[in-house]
Design a protein around this nucleic acid. Structure first.
Lengths: 123, 123
DNA sequence: CCTCTATCTTGACAGTTCTCGAACCAGGAG
DNA sequence: CTCCTGGTTCGAGAACTGTCAAGATAGAGG
């Protein structure tokens, strides 16, 4: 297994469903969450992710992402790689073009981490 | 009005309720969202925010935050300032100590931005 | 007033990140 | 095989960030 795959798996394992406002995060939990939030902490990446997630069929080809952007091709590619390594998107080559799609589970997990403390089950 | 207050107001205005996966973000929207996500993109800040948000009464004094942390006082202070300027927390001096509390609306707005595309009202 | 504690600000340094141009790989079409 | 287009990787420079030590500031208590 590649180093990158292991990282993604680690993130997927640990970052799930930890509501920020219920209990103080452990250093480990904070680490994996921060890695993903950092990936979202750039305007270009945020727009790329948004373009991919909101695109028809839930996926977009790189050729569609590069148009309407003020940064160069290599830069787009770099940001896509960051999003990929954070486990937020996934890419696949089909013929000439490469298509990226958002991974909804990852976004949902982050979303839930930010939610206010839920009513405890043991209330 | 201070420069910082203006920034916070700007962020609050524009970042509210833009579901990432419904429409492509504009450059401006991406900018304000990214500013907040970047603030969350550091493990120390994430743990600080979590400690504050999960603390009894929804607020915590700096003296409670510094214990159990491996970084120095000035560093804590720096991170608190970043969170404050991102509009995620707010601080208030009461006598000797300074108390910080999380701003739930900001967290909720970020959480909603990450949600999957909602079922369109005009379905 | 002075002193002590709690917290913030400043200044500096190391490490990281963003960006680009150039070079490189993968597929499709002659 | 050779060319062309789409996309990535490499290498480098500028800008930003995290961290600490040292100094500054705010309030409590004499």
């Amino acid at each position: 297994m590649s180093r990158q795959s292991k990282l993604i798996e680690l993130v997927n394992d640990a970052a799930c469903c930890a509501p920020l406002a219920r209990d103080p995060l452990s250093a480990g939990q904070a680490d994996v969450l921060a890695r993903r939030f950092k990936a979202l902490g750039d305007p270009v990446r945020l727009r790329l992710l948004s373009m991919i997630a909101s695109h028809e069929g839930g996926e977009a080809c790189v050729c569609e992402l590069t148009v309407g952007f003020e940064v160069s091709g290599p830069t787009i590619s770099h940001h896509l790689k960051v999003l990929r390594e954070a486990g937020l998107i996934d890419g696949e080559r089909r013929g000439t073009w490469i298509y990226y799609r958002a991974l909804p589970d990852a976004l949902t997990a982050l979303s839930e981490a930010l939610l206010p403390a839920p009513a405890p089950v043991t209330a």
